[in-house]
Simulated assay, not measured.
Amino acid sequence: MSAKKLLPTTEGLVREERREQLRRSASRFAENKLSVVGLIMILLIFGAGLFAPFLAPHPGDAGDEVHFEQQSQAPSFEHPLGTDTAGRDIFSRILFGARISLLLGVTVLSIAVTIGVTLGLIAGYLGGWPNMVIMRTTDVFLSIPPILLALAVNAALGQSLWYTMIALSFAWWTWYARLAQGEVLSIKEEEYVEVSESLGAGWVRVIFKEILPNIVAPITVKATLDMGFVILVGAGLSFLGLGAQPPTPDWGAMIANGRDYVTNYWWIATFPGLAISFTVLGFNLLGDGLRDMFDVEVE
């Protein structure tokens, strides 16, 4: 047998080191019981949204069906969480509403992370006037509250869930641009970056092949923590009449529908509110666990 086969390759050692680091990180995550609880909560929410047609006792109530003869009924065996003012099953609508909330969060953060991280990488690595232009633009967008921007977009284009997603995306990318730029400034002088540059790699290859993989952890942690906040803001906009329009089972709109009946029919607004609280808490607990797992700090 040759000596080459007896000696472990450098690539093999790197893979083994990464596996060991992943095991240590997973162990830290598992030690945090609240983080595990958060993961279970999020899995339940995703499961509820994914299997809503099978779990909902009255799936038609998530659409345009109405049953005025059953309106405002208290929780019962047939309607576990009661019915709303149109006689629709609240439990079924909450299950389908999970789809709307998760779609909102995933879409907004996908757009925001893509735009923000790309601009942050360019600003941090190139420096000079690109950094100045991108960061000053970021400061301008940071000065505009997300809800105000969403209100302006909906006023200009109309009330729509997709317009709300676009508005929130343009309000959220700034945080990822600043995060990515700060991370790049802290690692751009590392040896592996200098080696790649000395071998003739262009700046596009350096930032996406060398730098980006090394800042995935803080970006992932921040996205997880932001997910709950995006869902909360989206529900707030729906409460104001923006976002998803009736009869779409949006949690914020369901709360708005029951706000005038809290004293007599408390279940109409209470259970959608608890669904929002459950989801936001789950993402916060999961984000805290990932932060401890990766041992990173994010703003």
Rank of each mutant, 00 (worst) to 15 (best):
L13W: 10
R15S: 11
Q21F: 13
S27M: 13
R28A: 04
S35C: 08
S35E: 01
V36A: 10
L44P: 03
F46G: 14
F46N: 00
G49Q: 07
A52I: 13
P57V: 08
P59M: 08
G60Y: 05
D61S: 00
D61P: 01
D61Q: 08
G63H: 09
F68I: 13
A74P: 11
A74L: 09
P75E: 03
P80I: 07
L81S: 01
T83F: 12
R93N: 04
R93G: 13
I94K: 03
G97F: 06
L103C: 13
L104I: 14
L109D: 02
T114Y: 13
G120C: 06
I122K: 04
A123S: 12
G124I: 04
G128V: 01
I134H: 11
T137F: 14
D139N: 05
L142D: 08
L148W: 07
L148H: 00
L157D: 08
Q159K: 15
A167S: 12
A167H: 04
Y176P: 03
A177F: 02
R178P: 10
R178D: 03
A180D: 04
I187C: 05
E190F: 13
E190W: 12
E191F: 11
G200W: 04
V206H: 06
I207V: 09
E210Q: 12
P213I: 03
P218A: 12
T220P: 01
F229A: 15
G236H: 09
S238F: 09
S238M: 02
P246Q: 09
P247T: 10
Y265N: 15
Y265S: 09
F283H: 10
N284H: 00
F294Y: 09
F294T: 06
F294D: 08
V298C: 03
